[in-house]
Design a protein around this nucleic acid. Structure first.
Length: 440
RNA sequence: GUGGCCAUGGUGUAGUGGUAACACAGAGGUUUGUGGUACCUUUAUCACGGGUUCAAUCCCCGUUGGCCACCCCA
């Protein structure tokens, strides 16, 4: 007896040992439902605004991202999953998808499609970062990109889509927006900025001192108090925009005003990817206190990217929403009760009793499915008790009960889960009956 | 990549230098056809590796992982 028990224990504990890789996670149950819910919301709003779906490979040439995002950026230098393929080429798991979009635009001759080309996607990205709240090594972005149109209304529309999607999900957000001008504007400004930062060098943090040579724009959004003091007096990039860029930016803001999207002009907002030009923006949850990784959405214009990757000069803009971050906010704002409620499917449960009934169930369930009616069920269960418990957990309003007797009579029971009243219905009328119960 | 906190069943938590308690969840059952409100049974090599000790889940070191902040980004 004792011997048997220990033997069982050993086999039971054996299969462990395989775990998910660091920063990766399984999503199911409540999380799985929430994930799909956000996916549906994205699909709906993207379609409504005329974006077409695009799917691109997870694996791309490493060079694609190095060229577009830029050497010297954290994403490229430290966070990319790069490795050698069997043929010796350098490949990488995409850390973001804008470069893939630009590549796809060129490869597929999208410049000869009606412009602008508007695309959306909802996909996995990979960055070898240290995991943290709302940050994983494999994460998901919902994004919209508009290529082939240099018009401020495009920028505004993208922000409107991101803003409204969050609102649809029940998140009030705040838009931070800035313009970093053309590449030329930025170069001119950088000369000025670097000169200023060098003059204040001794007041800056160690990190920021390094940034002066590496990536001076980043000093602007440092969160350290000593840096903030210096940055407050720093020349602002807005002042250095060319006439066209300034005008363009003003138009974007006007459109946002018209659309009723509140925004905060943020002169210190710069972005960490090299391809951005002109408009840059980020969306934060309104309720959130200051914190760096609370940005739910990031995006902007990238007029030079397509050309840089070998295509015709093509203006473009887009945004990306971090799904895990949105989920993080949603989970915090929802009570556990609400979350449990979200798992309840409601509707109608189908229970069967006895082998004959089980066999007949497969037929009836398919008949219902073909009529477009979904009912919950668990054919593997035998006892009616167990199935009613399930029906209860699902929050079903009614349960269909098919037993030996009903199979013989060609009938089925409909039990009202609240009142306990049961009525006998002809199996032939089951579709109409269920449709009525589901209120369709 | 840097720093802080942490690591007990499926989940959330107790607890002790002599191998673990509670709640919930899961599975099965309490008359072979009735749930949401009963009862019973069952579900843990106390993250991994090493050290101290007669003895470690509990003490020490390391590893791995988690959470949080920084860097950076979504």
């Amino acid at each position: 007896m004792i011997h048997k028990k220990t033997a069982l224990k050993k086999t039971a504990s054996k299969p462990s040992g395989y775990t998910t890789l660091r920063g990766m996670k399984d999503m199911f149950g409540q999380e799985g439902e929430l994930f799909q819910y956000i996916y549906e919301a994205g699909k709906k709003i993207a379609s409504a605004y005329g974006f077409g779906y695009i799917e691109t490979p997870v694996l791309e040439q490493a060079q694609l991202f190095i060229r577009s995002i830029g050497k010297g950026t954290e994403v490229v230098d430290k966070e990319m999953y790069v490795f050698e393929d069997k043929d010796g080429s350098r490949v990488c798991l995409r850390p973001e998808m804008t470069a893939s979009i630009a590549r796809a635009y060129i490869n597929n001759g999208m410049q000869s499609m009606p412009q602008p080309v508007k695309l959306w996607y909802f996909a996995s990205m990979f960055r070898h970062d240290r995991p943290q709240a709302g940050r994983y090594r494999q994460f998901h972005q919902f994004s919209c990109e508009t290529l082939g149109e240099h018009n401020p209304v495009v920028d505004a529309e993208l922000i409107v889509v991101a803003y409204n999607m969050l609102r649809d999900l029940g998140i009030n957000s705040m838009v931070k927006i800035n313009s970093i001008g053309t590449l030329q504007d930025r170069e001119n400004y950088l000369v000025e900025l670097v000169g200023y930062l060098k003059s204040k060098r001794s007041y800056l943090s160690e990190d920021s001192k390094k940034r002066i040579t590496k990536n001076p724009l980043r000093v602007l959004d440092s969160k350290l108090e000593q840096d903030i003091a210096v940055v407050e007096e720093a020349p602002q990039i807005i002042e250095w925009l060319s006439g066209d860029s300034k005008k363009f930016f003003m138009s974007v803001l006007e459109y946002l005003d018209e659309a009723g999207v509140p925004y905060v002009l943020t002169p210190t907002l710069v972005r960490g990817l090299d391809y951005y030009t002109d408009t840059v923006f980020e969306l934060y949850p309104e309720s959130e206190e200051e914190g760096s990784q609370s940005a739910l959405v990031g995006g902007g214009r990238y007029n030079g990217l397509v050309e840089q990757l070998g295509g015709q000069a093509t203006p473009a803009a887009g945004f990306s929403m971090g799904i895990e971050r949105v989920m993080h906010v949603l989970k915090k704002s929802m009570s556990t009760e609400q979350q449990d409620q979200a798992l309840k499917k409601g509707g109608v449960f189908f229970a069967q009793l006895g082998e004959q009934a089980r066999k007949r169930s497969l037929y009836l369930l398919e008949e219902l499915r073909r009529a477009g009616l979904l009912v919950q069920h668990n054919l593997a269960k035998s006892s009616l008790k167990a199935q009613l418990e399930l029906a209860n957990k699902c929050g079903s309003t009614h349960t269909l009960i098919l037993g030996q007797k009903e199979v013989q009579d060609g009938t089925i029971l409909i039990r009202n889960m609240e009142s306990g009243i049961q009525e006998v219905v002809d199996q032939k009328k089951i579709t109409n009956a269920v449709r009525k119960l589901l209120g369709e």
